[in-house]
Amino acid sequence: MGIGDKISNKAEELAGKAKEAVGGATDNERLEAEGQADQAAAHTKQAGEKAKDAAKDVRDRLS
């Protein structure tokens, strides 16, 4: 996973956590749900990047 992707995914995750916290503090269920969705999207992207890295490692070992 490239460092740019890691930073971008982490920033998206942190923004989601902030949205969720603000939504919880203001009793705004929609904003809280958006924050949770943003975090889930970031986690999915991170998992995809890790899978790509693992596949690259396997390919490199077989070469």
Rank of each mutant, 00 (worst) to 15 (best):
G2V: 11
I3R: 13
D5Q: 15
I7Y: 13
I7E: 09
N9M: 10
N9E: 12
N9C: 09
K10I: 10
K10W: 07
E12Y: 03
E13H: 03
G16N: 01
G16K: 00
K17G: 04
K17W: 02
K17Y: 02
K19M: 04
K19A: 05
E20T: 04
A21H: 02
A21G: 05
V22F: 03
G24K: 15
G24T: 05
A25D: 01
A25Q: 00
T26C: 02
N28A: 04
E29P: 02
E29M: 04
R30N: 00
L31Y: 02
A33P: 00
A33E: 10
E34M: 00
E34K: 01
Q36I: 07
Q36K: 11
A37W: 02
D38W: 00
D38P: 00
Q39D: 06
Q39N: 10
A40P: 07
A42I: 04
A42N: 05
T44H: 12
T44Q: 15
K45H: 14
A47E: 09
G48P: 07
G48Q: 15
K50S: 13
K50V: 12
A51G: 09
D53F: 13
A54D: 14
A54Y: 12
A55K: 09
R59P: 04
D60S: 13
D60H: 10
R61A: 15
R61D: 13
L62A: 14
S63D: 15
S63Y: 12
